[in-house]
Design a protein around this nucleic acid. Structure first.
Length: 349
DNA sequence: ATGTCC
């Protein structure tokens, strides 16, 4: 069926990703595929796409069901970057039941890895609001915690249970898949809150409710159809944090996407290079020192050198271009710009 | 993406 990619001629969109959109569009029951300006190739399914179908395909959401980005206001007296980076808690170590932050109820009875950030493009970032275009959410100079993480092993186990029997085929029992899926979505959201609390505690600050918490890997049942989002967020009257990179700004935007965009907006800058390309090219281009102290003066806590190269800002598209495309196609309008101060990736070496 | 494929 129909495919529409919301990008301009100057935008970097790999043909492989567009090909994937057309392959998805040819699936049984597919009504419409909307590619966001951060579209890039994924494993089988494109990343940065919203796919509307009468048939539910778990592989279109992928393994990290419930992955999303939340923004929490935080107040700190006088932020000293080195001191703050050193005080970030170990978010590779899971919470335990004797921890004071341990929740009373855990969705899906999945206590493993609760409170951990994971790897890949996940991060917890202390950032400063640098510019405000629309009043009412955050003020210039405010500090926020941006948490990008998902359901860790839980979503992976849900997809694997399906894939082992049905591969890339449709969900045999959509209601059963959706029940497990919804638990992973709740687990992911709880996990982001717990991480914000862990960091706020460690930095001696109070915790606040998130001003934004939007998933970008999930299924929404809409008018009896399944709207699969993979690296795409809801954009219908809600705000979304569109993540830049570890070393460039991020944008809080107000989404107002229509049916052509499957009611969705981009979730980030989007990869420009595969992980293997980024590792090879950035090893030649950068030192770990300059990747740990970025061009905007922020610090990156990342003990894993390989991950540092894979996640270098040059591995991603320009966030300004992605936001420009959202605005040009009237999918969203900018609310505020944040600049990273300290980004936590992993303590592990 | 993932208690990580060898």
């Amino acid at each position: 069926m129909s495919v529409r990619v919301f990008a301009s001629s100057q935008s970097w969109i790999e043909s492989d990703a567009v090909d994937q959109c057309h392959r998805v569009a040819a699936l049984d029951g597919m009504r419409h595929v909307a590619g966001m300006p951060d579209l890039h190739p994924g494993k089988g399914a494109p990343i940065g796409a919203a796919m509307l179908s009468s048939v539910l395909y778990p592989f279109l959401v992928g393994s990290d069901i419930g992955c999303g980005i939340a923004v929490f206001p935080i107040k700190l007296k006088r932020p000293n970057l080195e001191r703050l980076a050193a005080r970030f808690p170990d978010l590779d170590r899971a919470l335990t039941p004797d921890d004071e932050l341990w929740p009373d109820e855990i969705p899906a009875d999945h206590p493993e890895s609760l409170g951990t950030v994971g790897r890949g493009n996940h991060f917890v970032e202390l950032a400063r609001v640098d510019e405000v275009m629309q009043e009412g959410r955050v003020g210039k100079g405010d500090l926020v915690l941006i948490v990008h993480s998902g359901s860790r092993g839980l979503g992976e186990s849900i997809l694997r249970a399906h894939t082992e029997v049905h591969g890339a085929g449709p969900a045999a029992d959509p209601a059963a898949y959706l029940e497990a899926h919804d638990q992973a979505v709740r687990w992911g959201s709880l996990n982001r809150r717990l991480m914000a609390e862990r960091v706020a505690h460690a930095l001696g600050a109070a915790t606040a409710e998130p001003i934004v918490d939007e998933c970008h890997n999930f299924v929404e049942v809409r008018d009896g159809l399944y709207l699969h989002r993979k690296g795409a967020a809801r954009g219908i009257g809600n705000d979304v944090l569109v993540a830049g990179t570890r070393g460039t700004p991020s944008y809080l935007v107000a989404g107002h996407a229509g049916a052509e965009a499957n009611f969705s907006v981009a979730h980030g800058a989007g990869r420009k290079m595969s992980r293997s390309d980024a590792l090879r090219r950035n090893k030649a281009k950068h030192t770990v020192t300059e990747l740990r102290r970025t061009a905007v003066g922020s610090l990156v806590v990342c003990g894993d050198r390989q991950l540092l190269f894979e996640e270098a800002p040059t591995a991603y598209k320009r966030i300004e271009q992605v936001i420009g495309d959202l605005v040009a196609h009237e999918l969203a309008t900018p609310v505020a710009v944040t600049i990273p101060l300290v980004t936590y990736k992993t303590r592990d070496r």
